[in-house]
Amino acid sequence: MINPHPGLPELEYVMPASLDEASKFLIEHTGEAKPFMGGTDCFVRLRDGAWNLKYLVNVKGLDGTNEIRFDPKNGLTIGAAVPMNKIVSHPDINKHYPLLTEAARTVASYQLRSRATIGGNICNASPAGDTIGACIVYGGKLNVHSIKGKRLEPLASFFKGPGKTVLEPGDIVTSISFPLPPPNHVGRYIKLGRNKISDLAIVGVTVLGYPDSNAKSGYTFKIALASVAPVPLVPLKAEQILADKPLNENIISEAAQAAMDSCTPIDDVRSSARYRKYMIRNLTRQALTDVWQKIKK
């Protein structure tokens, strides 16, 4: 029986002065404390009892977690606690990483995006996370603070299962960094929900393509699929087909079929696995077609 608490259960809101202090506190209270950013997922889990915490440790504003920095030479860094709406409205992101804008804009509702953060979207490790695909195809790496020091975690190996990541107690994701995007790239995120917008993704297809003289086809495509496997899925075979064979409608369909074949979705309350598989094929084909039409010009 699903019967959440009427409000947030009793807990302490902790405001450490530094990331070090925050990490220390989180280690001292392993199992009963979590870093706190936007709260939009966290509150739901606290109410329904999935998380049973004594402390919420605020990390917003600590050491750049609220900042967006773009450097034309090195790329982009987005603080983990930056809310989605800040990403959507940021001119440098819109100009250089438009796929991030497109993906961030599909998260829930405007007022939820005022609070929901990119760090939260990634660290929740939901296979349905809307921005994760864009972060993967742009080659994002997470900057993680821990008591042992700072380290980089590539997204490709970050997710371990639904809700599970490589993070250890005391680890705080402070930001995500992206290299400069490939020149003349085009991106597309197609999200299928039950409602036209605002729903969680039944499936989500992220595609990024760009002209690439190293590829036999002359183009490289990066694809990430949401809600079709325990972790965000990169369909390598589909990417390979698009790199190796001269592009046309049939090859795109072949790649879309390969994407479908690489999925291992489940039946759940949102959709059957069968529908998910067909949608991955159809929407991957749609996204690839959209992107290809634009980059071949």
Binding site: I2, N195, K196, I197, D199, L200, V269, R270
Partner: peptide
Amino acid sequence: MKLVNGHMQNPSFVDYRIATSAD
């Protein structure tokens, strides 16, 4: 209301969707 042996599987707005302004 998705009922499995009498248990509602979707008792929240997350999974009991209603029409929004965009629908």
